[in-house]
Amino acid sequence: MNSRRQPEDRDPSDAALVAAMEVRDADAVARLYDRHAARLLGLAYRILGETGEAEEVVQDVFLYAWRAAATFDPSRGTVISWLLVATRSRSIDRLRTRRPLAASEPGGRDPLADLPADADVERGSAAREWESLCRGAIGELPAEQRNVLELAFFEGLTHQEIAERTRTALGTVKTRIRLGLMKLRERMRPYWTREGNA
């Protein structure tokens, strides 16, 4: 039937929403928020372990996306990867400013200790597909490679700090990060190519 719903028309891609933001369409931000805010908040919360601060980061990221929409280059990644990187770097900056306090506490804070179960969040099929690919790719990594990548990504540690934390030689940490990330790159490559050519 011709009157059937056509998702392509009604659900513009993330890249199309960012393009709309470039011409100051505030509704596009609201739609992008509906799709990805929960994912970004989850990341900020995992790094910071505090909801109020994590929400401040998410607000900051969407304002950044609004102002820097023109700088988004679809050939260099997806919108969600762009937003995740922005969320991660802002969260780590905040974490580092308070690290001297955390370091004085015995054992420090474990940001993984109080995580809730994954929220039931509505996301588009493209986002679900991407997430599924990511989960598969990360799940295939050897545990020691995944561990060092996560310590760098979520805790913002230097490789020396990771070496101390994991009681591993510095060179081994570097090698594990390289091997793990190169594997992720290989697994994500079809998506990278597809987005780049979209």
């Binding site: 609201a30 990867s81 929220a119 990360i138």
Partner: peptide, 21 residues
């Protein structure tokens, strides 16, 4: 960098407060 961003998926999603949007 694109590959590294996939690590963000390891953090469980959280519902934002109603006021955030």
């Amino acid at each position: 960098r694109f590959a590294a961003s996939s690590l963000g998926i390891r953090a469980p999603s959280r519902s934002p407060s109603a006021a955030l949007k």
